[in-house]
Design a protein around this nucleic acid. Structure first.
Lengths: 197, 197, 197, 197
DNA sequence: CCGTAAACGAGACGGTACGTCCAGTCTTATT
DNA sequence: AATAAGACTGGACGTACCGTCTCGTTTACGG
């Protein structure tokens, strides 16, 4: 069957993988702000013109690389709500703190914000899935009775993710799996006892 | 009376106020990424050369404006821990969400991060005071018995601030005083019931 | 016929002519010292960046214009050594005194002197040909017996050209074809009678 | 008698000597084009403001230094016209080639040329005396019968000085006392045999 | 020996041009 | 159709030096 998934024929960027790999590569060496499209072109061996044909610029390139390479897998049922949430948040930490891409997030978002569609697209592509994973976990928690039914799920998730995000981006503190667990501990009993009403 | 406050002989930038006001002004019109030193020069009527004499560039200019103009007042005792924290967080929200400067924060930090001293200086100048205010409130809460003694205060504060920060920057949701109150509600009972151990 | 003279695929500055013409144009209006690269950019409609891509700066731009546009044709045999030399020197005068480029020479050379290669390149490109023309004439003169065989040709040519150059640059006196003829008259009988040994 | 030659009272720059010495000093280290008023200020320990109070800028500073420090002494009678002229020209060579100030001449003149008075003033201050010295020598030559009465003295002097000037500035050849002598040899017999009519 | 006026020091500033980086677009082969 | 190659416009950067302004401070003379 010709035209299968890795089809090199016809429309679409033929060098997408090359390019995205180069983006990640460069981001490990240099922060987002210092990254340039020209450098990506050189590093990937793909002509600048070609990059602009398929991506609108640096922000989109990085966003694409992020969305492609980030861990967005579903969270296994560990048996406890705390465990599930800790696992999910640890995944988030890996994405944000472990990879060079995470560090690029704030500036990237700030760049994308110049065009509202860009930002929306990024949120859809990148955040939606992880968020759905989390929502599932929360619902399991509610079903188990570990979390109250009236819980504001969105706010709860924002608080969860925000704790590690804020720490890395703003205060500059340590962020790792243990931190994730402690944030969950901070929130779960609270939520369980009827907060967020 | 020679040597008074506006003494033209004193050392240092004589047009600092003019400039910082222009920075804020421009930030209301245009996002951080689009802001340029040249525009600040034009808007303030102060020559580019002069700006570079006293500030290293855009990041420092904005950081200075931020640190100078942000609300960092102490939090009055409202009688309840929830009330105090809600008040503090509402102040944070005003700074982040209410002002154009807040929106600039992530990109600004990302810019400052290119020189570690720059970032450290900003944290000291800008975050330290607000954080101390909050720590005080938390201690009052501990004294009252609303919060456990073993509470990880830093993590608690990061979670508090992170919730609204993440919402504004990443998910793009609504952020206001009510949001602040609900975040507090989410966290305080939790912390009170023995989390963070 | 692909690859013709105005081929847009060829390597090198595509707007060279435009630029050099603008340089000359500006030099007629403003002395070398007042000339700026930015003005050349505006006048030629070619962006500053482009200019710097192909020329190192003002000095090189002017040197290029000079070398391209100066009269460096060979000297016809007028029948007499005096006549030949006068004709050659008149050509030099036209270059130096008649054109705005001539007036720029001293400052230009002084600029080029900051990089020894620059100066050497200019001498090769610009002086060499004219000098060869003159040397030919002198040799004809020697063959005719109008000039002595032991003549120091280089010094002779420097004296010839120097007279009009010095006059224009240093003393500020009148310089024209007649002046040229009188300089030749001053030198030829002298040289003929056995000087320069 | 108060107010004598070294009078330190009243009007005029009190640090003139300091400054001019610094100008010469700097010119030995750096070519005219690279020289800046600020450097002169630092080097001399005299404030920039003060320099501008007494001199209009770089050109005037250097011109002043030149005029003050150049050798403009009269030429002794060596007994022969050739000898006298050679001596005079050797003096010129010392000024032009031997000192850093000489190398600065073309650019300096080109700078001064932006204000006609500046150039005129310089010519008067600097050239006039040397030129008078030379004219004297030429007249002695005419009286001796070594040079024709109808000689165009100005042109003769321009040719003499031009030879060494052109060589140093344009062709970049060696210039020394011997060169001076050979230029004289080239010109004197010529002039003597009736040129310049 | 003290007051006055010149010369000087000090700092900040507006302003021009510099030379550079990078963005993003165009045209024309080439594969 | 996608990519390569090269030149180009354009905006902003950060810097150097210019020449000027305002004020205080020193200096040395002349009463």
């Amino acid at each position: 069957m010709p035209g299968s998934s890795a089809d090199s024929r016809r429309v679409g960027p033929r060098k997408r993988d090359l390019v995205l790999r180069a983006v990640v590569d460069e981001l490990t060496r240099t922060p987002y702000a210092q990254l340039t499209v020209e450098r990506i072109a050189e590093a990937s061996g793909v002509h600048k013109t070609t990059l602009y044909r398929w991506w609108s610029g640096k922000a989109e390139l990085v966003a694409d690389a992020l969305a492609t390479l980030m861990d967005t897998g579903p969270v296994p049922d560990t048996g406890s709500t705390r465990g599930d949430l800790a696992q999910w948040l640890a995944g988030t930490v890996r994405n944000y703190a472990g990879s060079p891409l995470g560090a690029a997030m704030p500036a990237l978002i700030s760049d994308l914000a110049s065009t509202p569609e860009g930002l929306a697209a990024f949120r859809t592509a990148f955040l939606a899935e992880r968020r759905n994973n989390c929502a599932e976990v929360v619902e399991r928690g509610v079903a188990r009775g570990d979390l109250p039914e009236e819980l504001d799920v969105d706010l709860f998730m924002d608080t969860l993710a925000g704790a590690v995000f804020y720490r890395q981006v703003v205060t500059g503190g340590r962020v790792d799996a243990d931190t994730a667990a402690r944030v969950v501990d901070l929130l779960v009993p609270a939520a369980a006892s009827g907060a967020g009403q």
